[in-house]
C-alpha cells in the first residue's frame, strides 16, 4: 500500500498506523530486532538532501529485517540527464518492494505511483505538500506523552506556507479531534490555511496559555530573502520559543520540533533541552513509526 500523505487517509487508518507503531518502539535496542520484512527490499530514493529522515528510514528497514538500496542524484545517472521516472523504474526493476521517495517537487511520489508497477510508494517528503511519516511521528509522540489527541490544543508555529510537516500534522491532528492553531506572520500563515479547519493566529503570546502542544517548525533562512520576514532576529523576537515564553505557557506544555532545529531562532537551547521538550523522543519514535509504515507498505 502506498503512503502519499495523511490528507487522504481516514481517521481509522491513521489510528491503525499509530497503534501498529507502538509495538515497534525500541525494536533493535531495548527489544530484539525483528524479521517482519525479511526478504523485502526497500529503496530509498532521495532527490533532496536529508539527514534524519534518510537515516531513520534506512535504520527502520534494517531493524525489521529488510534490505535497503540507497539512491541520491549526485554522481548518478541523473547527472547524466536521466529523468526521475526512468531512474525510479530502473531501480524498481532490480526487484524492489517499497520505494521511499523524498523530492523537492510536490506530487512527485504520486507521479511515481502512476509509472511504477507492483511496488508501494512511501512519501518521505514532497515539496511543501506532505511529509506523512513526520506527521505521524509528531502525533505519535504527543499521544505517547499526553495519553490522548482529541481535545488537545496544538499550535504549529512558523512557516506553514512552505511546510510539508505542517500540512501532514494538520490533516492528521484535525482528523483525530485535536484543535490546531497555525501561528506565524501572515506572509507564512496565509488566510487560505483556514480551509484546513484550523485557527489562524499571528500573535504567539496571545495563544501561549491555551496550548497543550507547541510544534516549532524550522525557519528556513532563505525565506528572509523572499521578504517573508525582515530578519531572523525579528522572527525570534516575535515567534521564537524561549524560556520567558515557556514560563507563561501551561506548566506541562509539550514542545515538539521536527528539526533540524536552529537554536536561538525558533527555539532557544533552554527550551529545546527542558523537561517539556520531546524532541529526542520524536527521533526515536520516528523509527517505530517508519517500521510500521514500511510493514504496511509491504502488505497489498
Amino acid at each position: 500500500m502506498h503512503l502519499l500523505g495523511l490528507e487522504h487517509l481516514s481517521r481509522d487508518e491513521i489510528v491503525g498506523l499509530l497503534d501498529a507503531a507502538v509495538e515497534f518502539v525500541g525494536v533493535g535496542r531495548q527489544v530484539a530486532k525483528r524479521n517482519d520484512l525479511a526478504g523485502k527490499v526497500i529503496a530509498n530514493i532521495f532527490y533532496e538532501p536529508s539527514t534524519r529522515t534518510r537515516l531513520s528510514f534506512a535504520l527502520a528497514a534494517r531493524r525489521v529485517g529488510a534490505e535497503t538500496l540507497d539512491f541520491s542524484p549526485s554522481g548518478s545517472s541523473t547527472a547524466k540527464g536521466e529523468s526521475f521516472i526512468d531512474t525510479a523504474q530502473n531501480i524498481v526493476a532490480m526487484g524492489v518492494d517499497v520505494v521511499v521517495v523524498r523530492h523537492s517537487s510536490s506530487g512527485a511520489p504520486l507521479l511515481l505511483t502512476k509509472h511504477l508497477k507492483d511496488v508501494s510508494v512511501v512519501n518521505a517528503g514532497d515539496g511543501a505538500h506532505e511529509h506523512p511519516t513526520q506527521g505521524l511521528l509528531d502525533i505519535f509522540t504527543l499521544r505517547q506523552r499526553l495519553g490522548r489527541i482529541a481535545g488537545l490544543t496544538v499550535a504549529l508555529v512558523g512557516d506553514i506556507l512552505h511546510s510539508r510537516v505542517a500540512r501532514s500534522n494538520i490533516h492528521g491532528l484535525t482528523k483525530l479531534g485535536a484543535k490546531v492553531i497555525a501561528c506565524g506572520p501572515p506572509t507564512l500563515v496565509p488566510s487560505e490555511v483556514a480551509q484546513f479547519g484550523v485557527e489562524i493566529a499571528h500573535d504567539l503570546d496571545a495563544i501561549l496559555e491555551r496550548c497543550d502542544v507547541l510544534n516549532l517548525l524550522r525557519v528556513q533562512f532563505e525565506r528572509q530573502r523572499g521578504a517573508f520576514f525582515p530578519s531572523v532576529g525579528e522572527y525570534a523576537h516575535l515567534f521564537g520559543m524561549n524560556g520567558e515564553r515557556l514560563r507563561r505557557a501551561k506548566a506541562d506544555v509539550l514542545i515538539l520540533a521536527p528539526g533540524p532545529i536552529n537554536r536561538g531562532v525558533e527555539i532557544t537551547p533552554d527550551v529545546a533541552d527542558c523537561r517539556n521538550s520531546a524532541i529526542l523522543d520524536q527521533v526515536n519514535n520516528g523509527l517505530a513509526v517508519r517500521m510500521a509504515v514500511l510493514k504496511r507498505a509491504c502488505e497489498l
Binding site: 510536490s106 514532497d126 511543501a128 505538500h129 510539508r164 496565509p190 480551509q195
Partner: peptide, 11 residues
Amino acid sequence: EGAVSHRLGVR
C-alpha cells in the same frame, strides 16, 4: 495561487 495551491503545497 489560492486554496488549491495552499492545499497541495505548490508555489
